[in-house]
Design a protein around this nucleic acid. Structure first.
Lengths: 227, 227
DNA sequence: CAGCATCCGCTTTGATACTG
DNA sequence: CAGTATCAAAGCGGATGCTG
């Protein structure tokens, strides 16, 4: 990208990370480093391969990304965030929070990768009964299963299958999100194609973290077409 | 911008605010709304006027910006952030914090606008003697003078002249920044072309807010060219 | 197959000129 | 003042080819 040539911290940040695809590459590395070139391509559907190579070079020069030659058994290059790159997390988190309302507009052409949801779930979800027994929720809703573990008020998420899920939700991503954030009842969820197995009531325990969003309610279609 | 077509909160945010110039327009409105079209152009040196018009339309559709017809005496359209647009502040702040180290690379071609520094100074600066007497610092270093007021541990900044500045710093922006953040002594500052008038010692009272940055030290040229 | 580089058609951007 | 119109140049997306 050409520089904005402004003596302004925001502009200078955007000079380095404001290019198309750049922050999504950082997202990928923040969610599952170390990452091979091919992993990155899979996590960035639609990116042109020359552009990915070019961006990785730029990010390396900017001190955001580093490449390593993985040890013999793997014998390939892997990419990671540098500490300076990891410092971008607050910006990614800000984008996740601001973008949550937009997740309720799912377009048919939208690609889905389960790992994109991991950090979002950690940020947005809150356990309203931190003293309750530990539970693990499995979401089978994307290309890979997601596990949410709640234990002593702390939430963690990962890709994989739960050994003994307290409850398992199967179906499309959007209603699943609405369900666990408490925006939809289990009845509504079922109508939208979700199958819930196990202790359904456990889902009531979770809700949207009240600190997660700004004070402004999500814009509705009505806001955009006032009469 | 074309959509990334990803069901991911970060990607969906970037679909709306990831275009070139877009976040800088939001910056302008966050720093000095309401803003006329011409004010925006002045705060965004280098933007093509058709692009500004196009971005403003996009931001309006996205619910981030609103336009108003100013009342008769002014008789022009002005632009503001909507509440939803104001919710972008944490993202702008993140970019400011991450970008601070980059402010110590000032290029000759970099445009300067004093108001770009206002939020950065508020975020980065900390009063180490909150119980001390109120002081006001004037910085004459850009296209307009900046006033920093410190009172009871709270810092505020504005464009304008102080009525009775405790101290006034005149000269280029970069050494001024280094001086008030405590990265440079008054001697060093003088060598870089700064003139300091008034109670010089007051400047010692301020320093970089330790909470302002991530834990990672700024990258140095040495990091980029290892031997 | 992993990790690119090259080529090509298209879209976006930037610079300038022009208008109500 | 607040934009629209025009056009050259740069960037992007997609396909393909090359190298270990």
């Amino acid at each position: 990208m050409r520089s904005y040539d402004e003596y302004c911290a925001i502009a200078k940040s955007l000079d380095l990370i404001g290019d198309r695809w750049t922050l999504l590459i950082v997202r990928e590395l923040s969610l599952r480093a170390p990452c091979r070139y091919t992993d990155l391509r899979n996590g960035l559907p639609g990116i042109a391969t020359n552009l990915l190579a070019s961006r990785l070079r730029d990010l390396e020069r900017a001190g955001v990304v580093m490449r390593e030659d993985a040890p013999p058994p793997i014998a390939t290059t892997v990419f990671r965030l540098t500490p300076r790159g990891a410092d971008l997390q607050p910006i990614l988190d800000g984008l996740i929070r601001w973008g949550l309302p937009l997740m309720f507009e799912q377009h048919p052409q939208d690609a889905i990768r389960s790992h994109w949801m991991l950090r979002a779930l950690e940020l947005m979800l809150c356990d309203r009964d931190p003293a309750g027994p530990p539970v693990s929720i499995e979401l089978d809703t994307g290309d890979q299963p997601i596990v949410i573990n709640a234990r002593e008020g702390r939430l963690s998420t990962r890709i994989g299958r739960a050994e003994q899920p307290t409850v398992t939700v199967t179906g499309p991503m959007k209603p699943t999100l609405a369900l666990i954030l408490g925006f939809a009842s289990t009845d509504t969820a079922a109508k939208e194609g979700l199958a819930i197995k196990g202790e359904t009531d456990v889902l009531q325990r979770f809700a949207l973290n009240p600190h997660a969003l700004g004070a402004t309610p999500p814009p509705t279609p009505a806001d955009q077409a006032p009469t």
